[in-house]
Design a protein around this nucleic acid. Structure first.
Length: 274
DNA sequence: ACAGGATCCTGGGGGC
DNA sequence: TGCCCCCAGGATCCTG
């Protein structure tokens, strides 16, 4: 399940191979992702050169010459990868961008189809603007103050707030549980019940957890891989996620699992009691 | 205005 | 061992 650090790892692994390459031709499947894939939109990319790859939170984009941009959201099971043109096209491949140069192409593969791949122009950035700050790209004093205010005014549980991309961009289910564990804060406490000290501590941990995950090239659960098809190493550093029934690495109490807003939360009830 | 629930989808895991 | 059912999970839309 790709979160901000996984998407950043994909961006970093693809960027050196993609920048400067032109799209020779495109192919799209007939299945819908979150958005419809319209052949004529992808035709616009043909003849244009990739100039940079950007990211905010879990949203990735490729900028092309001609002021064009594609937005890519990996959803649950999306993979964006560079392959040889003649490599077997695996099941659930939805987009192929055939590139100039040495016979490679960029493919988007997504079994569950929760992802998105859309073609637009570079001025169309409303979906970036409606996201909150990303701790791994803009973590200025102002960005932290904005996140703090949004947490303090919410009556939702802090776990659900952390998953809200309008509050903090890039935090998903793994890193929300991990950050709360490190900050020793209960996942069920309301945002507006947290003390200023607790919020400062939590945001510090969110930042640390996301940065460390990027350095470890992401956490591979289920089918996440980077742009070269490699799994991330951060799984070895995860303390509570998916570890229910196992001893807490800090106090040896058993790690619990609970459901919040339809999603699993993993935590130590003893270490995270307030 | 905000919260909670339904929705999309398939592979994999649990249960019998 | 096999088969069927159920369910996870990000973002968005709908209802209360």
């Amino acid at each position: 399940m790709p979160e901000g650090p996984e998407v950043e790892t994909v961006r970093r692994t693809l960027e050196p191979s993609l920048v400067g390459r032109s799209v020779l031709s495109s192919w799209v499947g007939d299945k819908k992702l979150r958005n419809s894939l319209r052949t004529k939109d992808f035709r616009l990319l043909e003849g244009n050169k990739i100039v940079r790859l950007g990211r905010h939170g879990k949203l990735l984009w490729l900028d092309f010459s001609g002021e064009l941009r594609t937005y890519v959201r990996l959803g649950m099971t999306g993979q964006l990868k560079l392959t040889q043109k003649d490599a077997v096209v695996e099941k659930h491949t939805h987009v192929r961008l055939i590139l100039d140069g040495d016979g490679q192409e960029l493919r988007y593969v997504d079994p569950r189809r929760f992802g998105e791949f859309s073609v637009t122009i570079q001025g169309d950035n409303a979906n970036i603007e409606k996201m909150g700050p990303d701790p791994t790209s803009d973590w200025s004093r102002e960005a932290q103050a904005e996140a703090t205010n949004n947490i303090r005014k919410s009556s939702r549980s802090i776990k659900e707030i952390l998953l809200d991309q309008a509050v903090l961009a890039g935090v998903g289910n793994i890193y929300a549980s991990e950050s709360l564990f490190l900050a020793r804060i209960s996942p069920v406490v309301s945002g507006n019940a947290l003390s200023p000290t607790q919020i400062v501590r939590l945001l510090k941990k969110v930042h640390i957890v996301l940065q460390a995950a990027i350095e470890n090239c992401g956490t591979s659960f289920s089918n996440y891989v980077d742009g070269n098809g490699k799994k991330g190493a951060n799984i070895d550093f995860v303390q509570v996620f998916m570890r229910h029934g196992l001893p807490c690495p800090r106090c040896k109490n058993t790690i619990d699992r609970l459901n919040q807003g339809g999603r699993s939360t993993y935590y130590c009830a003893k270490c995270q009691s307030s």
